[in-house]
């Protein structure tokens, strides 16, 4: 199938998703379940990735800044800005594309292959609305929070590593953090987070929902979902930077 067909079916899925829930309570329960799966379920990996990301960027920045003319507190600034601008939104979302994306794709793929989606259809339930909308909604709510948590932990990781390896003291780091801070960077990061959250949830949902065949195809489509999501994240990362910066 070519790109245009995929794009067409993807838009049809998104369009078909917008409908009035048959029963608000059941949908709410499903939404909360997804928030739990997507948000709480990924806090562990996001924390680990963020702390190390911040730590490594502190150490490597110090390694590159050899000039005695540049004050040590600049290291904190650079760590802060790279974490907020790029590492937390983009890198974390790429990790989440693997964690959350493959989960969404394989969950829906399994439901498709074992006819659970057909069973829902036969009950008179709009499956695009019931299965896809809560996932995208939960991703849009939870992923920006994960990105914010990641920013905090990333900077904390840089501070810890800077101190532990004797590059700069905690006081110098804290002073650097306050210098030349632009709040726009945080907004920019959040715009990226929302965009990526939509990519991470809707593309895997598309691949999972449209699986045909058996167990083998579920695996194949979830791999494809992750790959396509990552590429789309990188493309839109570039596009947003070009437009907004």
């Amino acid at each position: 199938m070519n790109f245009i067909t995929h794009l067409g079916r993807y838009s049809l899925m998104l369009k078909g998703m917008i409908a009035k829930p048959e029963n608000a309570k059941v949908y709410w329960k499903e939404f909360m379940q997804q928030c739990n799966d997507i948000g709480i379920g990924s806090i562990g990996i996001v924390s680990i990735v963020s702390i190390f990301m911040g730590a490594v960027s502190a150490v490597q920045t110090a390694y590159q800044l050899t000039s005695p003319l540049i004050p040590k507190s600049t290291i904190a600034q650079i760590v802060r800005d790279t974490v907020i601008l790029e590492f937390s939104p983009t890198l974390v979302c790429i990790v989440l594309a693997g964690v959350v994306g493959s989960k969404i794709a394989s969950e829906l793929g399994n439901m498709r292959v074992s006819e659970q989606i057909d069973a829902l259809e036969i009950m008179g339930i709009n499956t695009k609305t019931y299965l896809v909308m809560p996932k995208i909604g939960a991703a849009l709510i939870m992923i920006p929070w994960l990105v914010i948590i990641s920013m905090v932990l990333g900077i904390l990781g840089g501070r810890l590593a800077g101190n532990a390896s004797g590059i700069l003291s905690n006081d110098t780091f804290d002073r650097g953090l306050m210098e030349n801070f632009t709040t726009f960077n945080v907004w920019f990061a959040l715009i990226k987070a929302y965009t990526f959250a939509f990519i991470i949830s809707s593309i895997p949902a598309y691949y999972g929902y449209h699986v045909t065949g058996g167990a083998l195809e579920i695996g194949r489509s979830s791999t494809k979902a992750v790959v396509v999501s990552c590429i789309m994240i990188l493309l839109s990362d570039y596009a947003l930077a070009a437009i907004l910066l």
Binding site: N110, M111, E115, Q116, D118, A119
Partner: peptide
């Protein structure tokens, strides 16, 4: 009733 039951697992 589906051939493979199609229960929500």
């Amino acid at each position: 009733l589906f051939q493979g039951s199609a229960l929500f697992d």
